[in-house]
Write a protein that binds this DNA or RNA. Sequence first.
DNA 1: CTGACTTTGTTCGGTTGCCGAACAAAGTGC
DNA 2: GCACTTTGTTCGGCAACCGAACAAAGTCAG
Lengths: 411, 411
Amino acid sequence: MTTSTRAKQSGSGIAREGGLANEVLEFVWRRREVSRAEIARRTGRSRSTISEAVARLLPTGLIEEVGSGESRGGRRPILIGFRDDASTILGVDIGAAHVSVALTDLRGRILEWREENHPVRSDPHGTAALAVKLGDACLAARGPGAPDPMGIGVAVPSPVDPLSPYRILERILPAWHEFDLLGELRGHFGIPVFFDNDANLGALAEHHWGKAVGIDDFAYLKVATGIGAGLMIDGEIYRGATGVAGEIGHVAIDPRGPPCVCGNRGCLATFVGTRALVARTRTLLSDFPQSVLAGTDPDIWALEDAALADDPLALKVVDEAARNLGIVIAGVLNLMNPGSVILGGSLARLGDRLVKPLKEAVASRTLVASAAASDIRTSELGPRATALGAATHVLVAALADPSLFPGVKAR
Amino acid sequence: MTTSTRAKQSGSGIAREGGLANEVLEFVWRRREVSRAEIARRTGRSRSTISEAVARLLPTGLIEEVGSGESRGGRRPILIGFRDDASTILGVDIGAAHVSVALTDLRGRILEWREENHPVRSDPHGTAALAVKLGDACLAARGPGAPDPMGIGVAVPSPVDPLSPYRILERILPAWHEFDLLGELRGHFGIPVFFDNDANLGALAEHHWGKAVGIDDFAYLKVATGIGAGLMIDGEIYRGATGVAGEIGHVAIDPRGPPCVCGNRGCLATFVGTRALVARTRTLLSDFPQSVLAGTDPDIWALEDAALADDPLALKVVDEAARNLGIVIAGVLNLMNPGSVILGGSLARLGDRLVKPLKEAVASRTLVASAAASDIRTSELGPRATALGAATHVLVAALADPSLFPGVKAR
DNA sequence: CTGACTTTGTTCGGTTGCCGAACAAAGTGC
DNA sequence: GCACTTTGTTCGGCAACCGAACAAAGTCAG
């Protein structure tokens, strides 16, 4: 009870401390070019108040006057623009077997990109060293004008408990027990480090740069080695009571299905995880001698490529996966009624080949019309989505509290 | 995008308009008796500020000085108390086949109670007339000191879309198409009318008066004619993008299960709804000649009574229902990670007879330890929970905006 | 081209909400 | 009895925000 009071406290507290400047800064960021009068109209404040807030923000270099706009029947407005190149952000994607790092500007543009495979599960120290190496490489390669990064975002393939952020990975990655990845990164780069679950950050990336721009309630499903969901509710990532919301890989979709590593039967992961799809493909190889995959030892990339070429074997595997995913997505729609469902992970590049059977499976399992009407789409952000989402996390934090930006005074 | 900006606007806007008084009022309500200094400490405001806010609230009659508390080593504090009897609220529960009305005070105490069976589905006008009749009866029966009601809360057995609140019931109750229940009630009683889905309001009742006091993230499942869930996220009811979140009756739990009225197979409602349980009991009657139900034509009440008496047939039916419910609850835990799951509806009175097999089914279907540890409990609010929740809805609205209280000036 | 009207952005006085310091009242404890 | 605490109030002051007024810069009808 005290906690809930505190939470509400800090809610209004932020607005009191940061004043109007934060709100104006975020507004300018979102609108890119906007006049003082327009800000006043859209935020409900008076022009004089906005003028004052802009005057306080201009010296920070985060916004600037960028010329004049069209007249609306009177004096031309002076447009205020956000300086996307005022700083940079490092986004780190720790996968099950790879590490990738993106250097972005403040508009989600990837300025540099480095990627390397690595046995992440078993080697935390090597993973941290690799992240540092790739991060340094990004910084070294950036153009002469690009400023130093202001923060680091890290995506981890594991639930993140907001209440105890420092012992996180141990549940799913036992070798990582008590290893302080964040401390290593902060120690080397000397800037703030944020982190979160990879599916959550994928959802954040979609919300800012992808198919969920303008949608504040949606579910993002990432199909990779594991299957995870990132839930955005009212514009914010929802983590649940202990930070494990969205762990849908082991939702049971068939009580008579095959056994799973988790000890149950018929988990979604036994049908739709990357390994399950590859295994299923191999099983079906003998039935499809005409397939382009016949005679090969396919991996997930070959499977996807074959599906994109309309290979019958690959399409059958994708179709089955879509129907199984559909069972879980129908459950998500019935329970949470998101405005949209975005599919991420490498499978997303299959587009309609995945979505069409998925929609059929979902439509036959949702009662309420508006839930069934919820649109299901594939991400177009590609393999860099997770690292981009990690960087976006830092951007969101900085826009909410500009004191994180170097050179910006806290008050 | 504009919408989301507006939403944030109104968020900080409320705090600006209502000032501190609202916050203090809600705080006093929650703490029942608390001194000015204590409020100042817990809200982070200065004593002088709180003193001023209290001075503005005292003339409204909603709070009063109720004596002095224990000294903490200095002057004794003057305790401020909330006047639970300053007003009353009507809570109306529209069920599938009954209408019940509660008259409560501002502390959720039920002062009067009226209930009557009625063919709600097919007779909207008669239902409205009955609600008016029962409400009038509650008001007529109240003691001489009890004040007039300040608002009416209505629970309806149908999703409620917050964006179009006036055409709601038609989806599930076709006869109600375009019938303005709220207008009828407002017209007769002349006070504000609020309404929401019954499962949502059940969750609200648990949050204020039941097993979820102090828990801000939980799921409430109501098993009745239909099955619905009320989701509380961060202390607020979550409705989803179009208001149908929590409609879990038609989540598929067995793709090879029996056909459902919704057109699919193996929906939860075909296994666990009231009618399904009764039908299942009848089917099993011949196998349990020793059952107390043998030779009878049992209804849901008889089934529950038999289970409470440890009748083997009834226990078997309950056990099966628990395992089927467990499949869906496991999905809810994996997806949303609520801090608690509360079971409502009449089945809740079975207590551990329901919860024990339920927990077993859930434990075998949830991977992450903290999700599996989530506690599952039965409601203890009884058959009046929904009407109480409807009244609570009005209370919450009034505490957030005291101008709803008669006699309280808007500013 | 001119004059009436709009829109923008700034300046300035005033209101509001909240805080901190100071103080009286009322208590505790050695 | 005396030093110290805590409570609640009063009062001066600060910061945020607003509205009115105004100059600058534009549109548009004639």
